[in-house]
């Protein structure tokens, strides 16, 4: 099989030039979806019959948690691709995904704590869902630390890829934790197999926020990767030409 096309795809320069054209569109789309979702969810969605207004933090908490988990797979897969094919671009994507994932996991933990106080009566409880989410946060931090602890870029990429792959086992555990064990955290509202256990008036803004968060993630990942490309390829002629052009 001819793998030439695959390697061309991994050219940092190609990525930089292509994404440069997408960025304004993606940024606009993200801004529009995010504003629609936030205003709809926080101002116009009806209050919950039990939790009142405090349930509205779901419009932040669920989208950031989704991306904290999905972002881990994106990071692990790009790490594996970079490891197998020694593709520089994939390594750069992986390095860029780690701090974004860490920030999202942190936001998920903090927004969950803020939600927990008025509903459960406590900020923090060591149940399976929350603890496994904290483990995810430390995994992200560990990968970020490994990335900067090698002077050789390729060694850093290999080491952090191995850690990322080992940590992959945590993602299904986080997802299924509320079903396997007795937890204080409630089971999932959005299910793959059945309708969401949420009134449509509340669910549609949540859906918009989830899509907005995916766009936001893509946008930030592209921006971080572009910065990484320019940093690592600063000796090349095309980056220097980019510099002179400005």
């Amino acid at each position: 099989m001819n793998w030439q096309w695959f390697h061309r795809l991994g050219s940092p320069r190609w990525f930089y030039e292509k994404t440069g054209r997408w960025l304004p569109w993606l940024a606009t789309l993200t801004a529009v979806l995010m504003s629609v979702g936030l205003i709809w969810g926080l101002a116009f969605a009806p209050v919950d019959f039990k939790q009142g207004n405090s349930f509205r933090i779901i419009y932040i908490h669920v989208p950031v948690s989704f991306l904290a988990l999905a972002g881990y797979y994106i990071m692990a897969i790009s790490g594996a691709v970079g490891y197998i094919w020694k593709m520089k671009l994939a390594d750069m994507v992986m390095k860029s995904a780690a701090p974004i994932g860490a920030a999202l996991t942190f936001l998920a933990l903090v927004s969950g704590a803020i939600w927990g106080k008025p509903t459960w009566g406590t900020y923090w409880v060591w149940d399976a869902r929350i603890t496994s989410m904290l483990v995810l946060f430390f995994l992200y931090l560990g990968i970020m630390a490994l990335q900067v602890s090698f002077t050789n870029q390729q060694q850093a990429a290999s080491a952090s890829t191995i850690l990322a792959l080992v940590g992959c086992a945590n993602i299904p555990i986080i997802y299924k934790s509320v079903d396997i064990w007795n937890t204080l955290h409630q089971p999932a509202t959005i299910k793959f197999t059945s309708a969401p256990s949420m009134h449509p008036d509340m669910f549609y803004p949540l859906l918009v926020m989830i899509v907005a968060m995916y766009c936001f993630y893509a946008l930030v990942l592209i921006l971080f990767t572009r910065a990484e490309i320019v940093n690592r390829e600063r000796q090349t002629r095309w980056v220097q030409a980019l510099n002179e052009g400005q």
């Binding site: 209050v47 019959f49 009566g121 406590t122 089971p187 949420m198 009134h199």
Partner: peptide, 28 residues
């Protein structure tokens, strides 16, 4: 320490009332 465990269902108060009436239950 007593913590309240809420479930995964969210609905507006009017809908909750309608459901309660339909199932002939008193209150919520």
């Amino acid at each position: 320490e007593v913590l309240a465990k809420h479930d995964e269902n969210y609905m507006p108060p009017e809908v909750a009332e309608a459901i309660a009436e339909e199932s002939q239950q008193q209150g919520v």
